[in-house]
Design a protein around this nucleic acid. Structure first.
Lengths: 196, 196, 196, 196
DNA sequence: CTTTAAGCGAGACGGTACGTCAAGTCTTCGT
DNA sequence: ACGAAGACTTGACGTACCGTCTCGCTTAAAG
């Protein structure tokens, strides 16, 4: 009844190869970026033969898309209940810190942006990741709106508001301008979050 | 005295090479994007030898940087005087349109972000370009603050405000999410710009 | 007593695999030659799995050796009795024609020679095939000597004489010089065969 | 006056590359044979980059053809005047010894034969080499015929006769049968050379 | 007439070499 | 003398086979 269909069974070697290759790809993406990522290097670091990589992925873009899709598990959790300003500040503070951390798994964000510009499949992954990344913030904002704690002007959405909050942190990181750090978060919240 | 210093005189061949190379580079950038741009192709299209290109530029990044620098004339100018909201909306509307242009902006921005993450020199360029990009917006906001038309909370700066305004437009483009287009700009301004 | 020894019994599946593989190998040898023959292609054409081929043969050389051994049945038969010159001419004429046949002889002989130079096992096969190839000719000459129809100088053997007769035909084929064809055989016999 | 035309001048780097590559190719041909010769190995041994090799030769066959063409200088010289039997024996004796030499002759000849079967260009080279190889023998025979020392049957040529003399030596070497050595040469001459 | 062990196909694996392409360096020539 | 031309080394590309190896399936034999 609940018997596993035979076609669902995957050769364990395939699964094992897939894992070590994607792990190596993510490491290298963070280290050298998309442009300098080579399949040879992924093969060397993972200990998997180049031909095996090409057996499973069509090329660099495809591999990077798969690798980035692995990042989905990193999702942030929604903070404990409380005043919006405080909850938002909590999320942004963590984000401002993470974005500076060079070992952060999403150090491959720039690589992801580059790859997205060149390949629709990666772009789809990128979009998903971005939406998952702001999801907790959007949820907190939605709850505040629902509770009447936050009032948005006509035509505005919490998604756009989330982008406006995140923008100053992320854009400065991407373009290597003076970063906004944890101490700057309260002023940012005061500036962007509507209300008294 | 008024004689032109010898070092100011440039071999006309050099000037000629520089022009045709940069022209070819810009054409190719628009056609194939940064990632698929090759020095070899620039040499072929321009009719200039590869070694000549390397004599004048350090590599692909340097060449593209020069090429983009040629575009400085494209810089946005500060809009005519008027109410802040209107001036800001004008800038953002143009930006929302440009960011969709598939030619050089989409081709170069992601590459610039990627390269900035790996190479400090490029990061410096990136930073300059980013600041030049938001300069008109910051200037408009500064003027409004000076005129008392806009009041910022304590600790907030116009630079951060500019990022918050630009964030929703740019982040959506970079991560290939639903773009904000010209029609969405008024709501964005209402949402982010402080005030009644 | 008359029972078939158990070691003589072969699993019919093995026999079947052996046959279709060798047939495919011979076909491919004729089509693409030894150098371009691949085990993969033999597997594909025969419908037998690559692993099965490697289960029975050590590699390409071994497989080709087996395949060529299958050709032993092709051996030339001794011509009908008659005058030596006529019998010799008959054999050489057929040989001169066969040697031009582009299929297996041209495809295999050079490869066999090459392989023999690298691998003692193949050299042994090569030697056997060569001796089987000249056997009818040697037999005819031996019979003529026994009958007193042919007289050899002291120290000479019919084996060497056979080589001398075959040499002009085969060497020209191997080195792609002007071939000796059927019409040239009588002059060759007159020239090399001792006697009045 | 005797000025070298400008188009005759070759970049010395090209000449240098050509020389070291062909030398390495000949060495490897002798060592591993045609089948196991790889362009990579030639590149490694010669110290010349693979791409440079491909710039000058179309592939393995073309390279081998060029390399073998370099062997043309090895030609044997015609022996001193004297009786035909003695002069022929002298040539054959040297040949019988050389053919056993495990270095290049035994190693390259099979490779050359193999390559000739697969590539018309190599076949042309092969033919030339073969003809140059028997040229001294043919010349000696021609001189004997001209001097009335040797009489050929109608329809026979000295070229065929040369092949008949060489055949027993070379065929046995190629097929790894019992070699004919120096001691066997007189009997071979007595057997094949027409006359009293 | 079932076990049971073998031969089998399928195909993933780590490798090596292929022939191509671009990068960036360096030598030679022509103006 | 210096820039243009282009040959060079290097190294990654993506492909094709290599020979090895696990898998289950199926099929022949021995109990």
């Amino acid at each position: 009844m609940a018997a596993v269909s035979r076609s669902d069974v995957v050769d364990p070697r395939i699964e094992r190869s897939r894992e070590v290759v994607l792990a190596a790809a993510l490491e290298l993406l963070a280290e050298v970026g998309f442009g300098d990522l080579t399949i040879e290097a992924v093969a060397a670091r993972s200990g998997v033969a180049k031909s095996t990589i090409y057996r499973h992925w069509a090329g660099k873009l495809d591999l990077v898309a798969s690798a980035c899709a692995e990042l989905k598990s990193d999702a942030r959790t929604v903070p404990a209940p409380g005043p919006v300003r405080q909850r938002v500040a909590e999320i942004l503070t963590e984000f401002a810190v993470n974005v500076q951390d060079p070992t952060w798994r999403r150090a491959c964000l720039p690589a992801l942006i580059e790859a997205s510009a060149r390949c629709p499949e990666v772009a789809a992954v990128s979009r998903q990741l971005a939406e998952m990344g702001t999801a907790p913030l959007v949820q907190v904002l939605d709850e505040a709106v629902a509770a009447g704690e936050l009032r948005l002007p006509a035509g505005a959405t919490t998604a756009v508001l989330a982008d406006a909050l995140v923008g100053p942190i992320l854009l400065r990181a991407l373009f290597h301008r003076d970063p906004l750090d944890a101490g700057d978060v309260p002023a940012l919240v005061d500036l962007v979050l509507p209300g008294p």
